[in-house]
Amino acid sequence: MKSRTQMYVITAFAAAIIAVLAQVSIPLPFGVPITGQTLAVGLVVTILGTKYGTLAVLVYILLGAVGMPVFSSMSGGLGILVGPTGGYIIGFAAQAFIQGLYMDKLGYNYVHAIISNLIGMVVTLAFGTAWLKVAMSISWEAAFMGGVAPFIVLGIVKAVAAAWLGILVRNRLMSARLLPKYA
């Protein structure tokens, strides 16, 4: 029972990390900024795996949905989720689940962490771009140019950084017995 409580505390801390890194934000046209959220989600899932990584992302989204200022630029509320960036935020949950499943099946090492983070980046960009098209009533080309193109290079850098740091932290937490083997 102690490890379950411990994992819920770590999960809450992980949701807080996502909220803090979301405040690192560089505004771009179309209302979709470059943020630290994608780095944070990849990092959290690499460390915690599918179950607790996805739970941390869902807690983060729920906190933002009820109005806590956890989204980028200290914003929150349902309006953000139905606005131009909402698809990216919802995509974080899909990213967490898919990325975590990949690593659960193939292993927690640097190579699989990089691959899973890159897959997660694509998942988030797909959700975000589809919603950007709908929310802004723009063409697929415009949605791609505003919702994917500006994020590709930095997204790859963030995916590699999340993988490297995530595996490093995960291994240290497991060595210190702060993260159970099943996480």
Rank of each mutant, 00 (worst) to 15 (best):
174 M>R: 02
117 N>F: 04
109 N>E: 10
15 A>D: 07
70 V>M: 06
179 L>I: 04
60 Y>H: 10
42 G>C: 00
85 T>W: 12
162 A>N: 01
8 Y>V: 03
68 M>D: 06
41 V>R: 07
165 L>W: 03
156 I>R: 09
80 I>R: 15
60 Y>S: 00
18 I>G: 00
137 S>V: 14
13 F>M: 14
11 T>M: 11
65 A>L: 03
2 K>I: 13
82 V>D: 13
78 L>H: 10
27 P>A: 06
183 A>Y: 10
113 A>F: 01
45 V>I: 05
161 A>R: 07
169 V>P: 11
36 G>H: 03
135 A>M: 15
113 A>G: 10
98 I>N: 12
171 N>F: 11
51 K>T: 03
123 V>N: 03
116 S>I: 00
46 T>G: 04
16 A>I: 13
64 G>V: 05
132 L>V: 14
154 L>I: 11
65 A>S: 10
14 A>F: 09
125 L>K: 05
147 G>Y: 02
77 G>I: 08
167 I>G: 00
69 P>M: 12
144 F>E: 07
53 G>N: 09
35 T>G: 04
21 L>D: 07
20 V>K: 03
153 V>I: 11
157 V>S: 05
94 A>N: 03
135 A>R: 15
137 S>A: 15
48 L>M: 10
12 A>G: 15
97 F>G: 05
7 M>Q: 12
53 G>I: 01
23 Q>G: 14
69 P>C: 09
97 F>D: 03
76 G>K: 03
159 A>I: 00
139 S>M: 13
121 M>V: 07
85 T>C: 08
108 Y>V: 05
75 S>Y: 10
138 I>F: 11
22 A>S: 06
153 V>N: 04
118 L>D: 04
151 F>D: 07
21 L>Y: 08
73 S>G: 13
97 F>P: 00
38 T>H: 01
141 E>Y: 13
158 K>E: 00
120 G>I: 02
94 A>V: 07
159 A>N: 08
18 I>E: 01
94 A>I: 04
127 F>G: 05
52 Y>D: 11
45 V>H: 01
142 A>L: 14
51 K>S: 01
72 S>G: 02
93 A>I: 13
139 S>G: 12
65 A>H: 01
28 L>H: 06
48 L>A: 03
165 L>Y: 01
119 I>K: 04
129 T>G: 01
84 P>D: 06
20 V>I: 13
61 I>L: 09
129 T>N: 02
79 G>W: 13
26 I>E: 05
165 L>C: 06
130 A>T: 14
82 V>K: 13
59 V>T: 09
54 T>K: 10
105 K>N: 09
79 G>R: 13
57 V>S: 01
